[in-house]
């Protein structure tokens, strides 16, 4: 086997104790095992190497070797990544896994290569859900007039505006204070984030909207990747796949536990009926059209077909 001693810096945003940190450790262990200890992953969490966009630029420039981060922050680098921002694209994790690990997911990932990044696998951040202080959101009309913090991103802003909320962009660092002082009424994030950021202290209602599925993506600097031997590349890819399987299982178990915790912390939790979800989805055709034109009609159609296949094949 053609494997040299290597030190690989792998950056991520959450802390060591998070699902991201645990999966990074699994990845590091797998790489060490498969390379006979020659390739060392130095996993550095808590955004110590900077926020996602900073790490991405470092990877492209070859100043850092690997990272895992949100696909949404890659949209500025590779516009096809915007496909994963589509609201209500997946209705469950089974569909998400099938599409992300299938040819469509690979195609989107491969587009990164032109920009100096190599995508290996998708991890799961999770379905985003909505919390607020005003009322349980059980139907479309309940969103009316809720001042909702969304990620500073046109798709999310427009989507929630169309659904009737007053969508407000705000930095995540200011979010807790803004919720506490009621500068905004609500926000939307996966369960794990709602729990770890203590939003339950300042939010009453949690509505299980599953309105968008957020993946994370493991990437390598292309400059670095091209200097690796085939064997070394295989070590990284195989370990990434193992870390992916572990991460998804771990994240899902944690999300279930987080939901239970949020309930025990006193949040009032309600689900959305499939009929209401469909009403929301139908309202967003304009958004879908603009995403389709951004990522290209071919990719959009392939994605829809892949989702339909996953949905039919259950």
């Amino acid at each position: 086997q053609d494997i040299k001693p290597r030190l690989i810096r792998f950056g991520y945003g959450l802390n060591e104790q998070s699902n991201q940190g645990r999966a990074a450790k699994v990845f590091a262990d797998e790489v060490a095992k498969a390379s006979g200890g020659k390739m060392k992953i130095r996993a550095i969490g808590a955004a110590a190497l900077g926020p996602d966009n900073q790490m991405q630029q470092a990877l492209i420039g070859g100043a850092q070797e690997m990272m895992v981060g949100s696909t949404a922050t890659l949209v500025g680098i590779s516009k096809e990544m915007a496909i994963w921002d589509t609201p209500f694209l997946f209705s469950n994790t089974k569909e998400a896994d099938a599409v992300l690990d299938g040819p469509v997911g690979q195609k989107v990932m491969d587009k990164l290569q032109e920009k100096g990044l190599v995508g290996l696998v998708y991890w799961e951040n999770g379905f985003r859900n909505l919390t607020n202080t005003k009322r349980p959101v059980t139907k479309l009309e309940d969103l009316d007039g809720i001042k909702l913090r969304v990620m500073p991103n046109d798709v999310y802003l427009e989507s929630f505006k169309i659904l009737g909320a007053n969508a407000v962009p705000l930095a995540f660092s200011e979010l807790f204070t803004a919720l506490e002082t009621k500068t905004v009424d609500g926000q939307e994030n996966p369960y794990n984030t709602i729990l770890s950021s203590k939003f339950y202290e300042v939010q009453k209602y949690l509505s299980v909207t599953n309105h968008v599925y957020s993946p994370w993506i493991v990437t390598v600097s292309k400059k670095y990747w091209d200097g690796l031997s085939k064997d070394e590349q295989k070590v990284l890819l195989d370990a990434a796949k193992k870390s992916r399987d572990f991460e998804r299982q771990d994240t899902r178990a944690e999300a279930a536990k987080a939901l239970a915790d949020l309930k025990s912390k006193g949040m009032q939790i309600n689900e959305l009926t499939p009929a209401e979800t469909a009403r929301m989805r139908d309202k967003l055709t304009k958004i879908n059209a603009s995403i389709a034109s951004n990522v290209g009609m071919d990719l959009w159609k392939e994605t829809q077909a892949a989702v339909a296949q996953a949905r039919g094949g259950k």
Binding site: Q54, G62, A63, Q64
Partner: peptide, 19 residues
């Protein structure tokens, strides 16, 4: 950990903050 890009990137990141 030597790379001049990291120096420049962090100089900018020290300022690029909304708060």
């Amino acid at each position: 950990f030597w790379d001049t890009q990291l120096l420049a990137q962090n100089m900018v990141a020290g300022v690029d903050s909304f708060p």
